[in-house]
Computed example of a mutant assay.
Amino acid sequence: MAYQLRGVIGRISAAQGVAAELGSVASVVPLEQGFALVPYTTAVYDAFVAAGRASERMKPFWWLGESLAELCAAASRDSPLVYVEAEYFGGAGDQKAVLWKGGAIAFGPVTTGRLSASGHGPGQTAISQALAGLGVVGTAPERDEFLVLGLDRHRNWEDWGGAG
């Protein structure tokens, strides 16, 4: 079974600011603990590119370009932000995450691979580590930051963005 996610996560007000910068096709999806996700759907990406904000990708990410990274860095001066990418199919795949605080990268970029092969358990994946740095609190080893926010709610990143 496949799982895909890409987007920006922060406090609701910070996520709203990022969504406003990304344009009218961007949405803000409330999560637990006062956080929200701005899904980086194909429609949002295409609108960002059409607005002339296309840029070289920031490695190791596939979709995070330097322009979006600069937007997140600037927005993090007021409130920390995380950008995440995850893609799994049949147990193979990886997670990538980066955390900005105070206008600069505070964690990452970090990549973790397949959970069973890499030795990364709950709370040790790239996304959970970045979310912990953001202030998300896991409730138990089996309910790490990723699960507590409900990031397992949808299996495809496009499902987070509604029509986008």
Rank of each mutant, 00 (worst) to 15 (best):
V25C: 12
A69D: 15
A73Y: 04
A126N: 08
S128K: 01
E70I: 00
W63F: 15
H120S: 06
L81E: 07
K96V: 08
D144P: 10
I9F: 13
N156A: 10
G119V: 07
S67Y: 00
A140Q: 13
R155Q: 06
P141M: 03
L151Y: 12
L22M: 15
E56I: 12
S76C: 12
V148T: 15
Y88G: 02
L131V: 00
W157D: 07
E70M: 08
T41H: 06
W63Y: 14
A74N: 04
D159W: 08
A2F: 05
G138T: 09
L99I: 05
L151S: 09
A163E: 15
V25E: 14
P80Y: 07
Y45R: 15
A140H: 14
R153G: 00
Y45S: 13
G133Y: 11
E32Y: 01
G121K: 01
P141S: 03
A43L: 12
V29L: 02
D144N: 13
A2D: 06
V49I: 15
L134W: 06
T111C: 07
E145C: 13
A132E: 13
R6E: 03
E21F: 09
L64K: 05
V49M: 11
A50D: 10
A126F: 04
R143L: 15
A130C: 07
P30L: 10
A43M: 11
E66N: 01
V18N: 03
L149V: 07
R11L: 13
D152I: 00
L71Q: 11
V137A: 02
L149Y: 02
L22C: 10
D159C: 05
V148N: 04
I127N: 04
K96L: 11
R53N: 13
V25S: 14
P109W: 09
A132V: 10
M58S: 11
W157A: 05
L64D: 07
T111Y: 06
A126Y: 05
H120T: 10
